[in-house]
Amino acid sequence: MSAKTNVEIIYRHRLPIRIMHWTNVICFTILLMSGLNIFNAHTSLYFGKSSYNGKPAVLEIKAMQTSSGELKGVSSIFGYKFNTTGVLGASTGANGKLVARAFPSWSTIPGPKWLSMARHWHFFFAWLFVINGVCYVTYAFITKHVQRDLAVTKQDRATIWQSIKDHIRFKHDTGESAKRYNVLQKIAYLSVIFILLPLVILMGWAMSPFLNSLLPGWIDLFGGRQSARTIHFIVAWLLVGFVFIHVFQVIITGLWNNLRSMITGYFKIESSHAENK
């Protein structure tokens, strides 16, 4: 008996999907970073219709002066304060000195505090992002990508518990089952595509005073304009969380193989067979 590795190359991602994936990467990165620059113009988040309703802010990132005259970055969530000097509230600027700014310049587009420019970046790439997203969803339904590859099947539902255990142990699918998305992967993709992304877009629209007038009061369903701003911010970070897990999974399940499949489309499947002779 000798073990032999069977290598099979499959065509995994079609060209439109690959293009839309990388367009999404660029758009999301720019939207996040220009969004942080916009946040820096008013560094508090609230729940409610207005910012000034007698209730304290939900989240605040501020700079304070210590008794010795040095800058200190202080972030507070529901009134609980944390010293975040160096990253949030106060971080080093171009001259190496601490300056007061909520998110550091290395995390924002453009780097300096520049609200009008950040808005230009944000709204341009928001359009690209939404158009790309609409193209993706349309394409994915027409080609039955959603129905065939993303829909959670009866069999998937039966393997959820096993899939959770496998993920915790970093055990990933090989051979025949690596040709399909596992159930947690499907749930993650579906929630991002059909819940988080539509929500982040909707909450962006909810901040536009003109779009508010299309159906006055519609944003109260989400608690009002300031709630919408807070939800927009939270969902953006949930998406960042997804990206981190996604990239982590890409790395541990074969970085080059995964990257190649999203660039050229081709994915290598290895399965070991025990040969009887």
């Binding site: 008013h42 207005s50 304009r225 701003r229």
Partner: peptide, 8 residues
């Protein structure tokens, strides 16, 4: 406000 806050 363009900065992000609202007042009624």
């Amino acid at each position: 406000c363009v900065e992000g806050w609202s007042a009624i």
